[in-house]
Design a protein around this nucleic acid. Sequence first.
DNA 1: AAGTCGGGGAA
DNA 2: TTCCCAGACTT
Length: 347
Amino acid sequence: MRGALLRWYDREARDLPWRRTRDPYEIWISETMLQQTRVDTVIPYYERFLERFPTVESLADADADDLMEHWAGLGYYRRARNLRAAARQIVEHHHGDLPDEVDGLLSLPGVGRYTAGAVASIAFDRPAPIVDGNVARVFARFFGIRQDILAASVQARLWQEAETLARGRRPGDLNQAVMELGATICTPRAPECARCPLERRCNAHEAGDAAALPFKAARKAPKRVAAVAARITRNGRHLAARRPPGGLLGGLWELPGGELVSGETPEAAISRNLRERLGLTAKSCKTLGSVEQVFTHRHLELHVLRVETAGGRVRRREYDAHRWLSERGLNALPLSRIAQKAIALGR
DNA sequence: AAGTCGGGGAA
DNA sequence: TTCCCAGACTT
């Protein structure tokens, strides 16, 4: 398998920004951004992020909002926070150099089995295995694995096969070759077997069920939830609040608000949330409209209202910061997509 | 083993 | 619409 893979990879590999460097820091950043995120989405974020944070030290010193500004829109925001925490750990305990083996990499926050293997093999030429969605699909077809791909026993088999593969010369390129194959030829719906360097030895192609593999149990539909957000303006400046780190959209800014519990009207919900979370009293509300965002496990409908409040000052509860900002300042904040949509409604 | 955590491109 | 993406981490 290795020879055919490497010959194909040397010929067909896409020219991607992180393939032009051997810098472990840059490869680590790319692998973290690529977690559950497509190559085309990552590229502009990768370039901008490395321009702003070119070294481990600069990342370790990053300001939280500055950091989130460079991640806003990419999703899975805990990744950004973990990157900075890991950078601090690297500066503190490793003299600013990334660990060059899987075990050391695994000790960093946000680095799991996949990312540790990717950095170890690609940046340090270690024979470390990796299994991502691409590898799992290619292997399921090649080896004819017809059980639930997420089952623990199947995962163990996949990692075992990956370990065997990475034992060859150029482990980093072997790993990347399988992922490249999965991303460009051995794709989920309609694999182009005619172009595949492994066609002749592929079990699923032989059996004629490549497009049906890998098998996955159906996922549950995202739960529908509703929330409210307030456009509050005083002296021409708009109130924004920062979500606490850790949870959903952690560290991002938004128009203040909160959940709408069942049976509650948007007006009642915004009044209650502003009182409970910001100590503000709503005097009048006007609906601006609603926006939607679908997350992996949630389908959120956000009602946006213009709210006049009594004059009292803000006393924060769950939010960990707030600011009164011009329209321009508002849009310069690190905002999630749903917050961007909500702000656009009020213009 | 199942749930949490974003957003978007492709079919 | 549905799927799923160079996953990690908690429960």
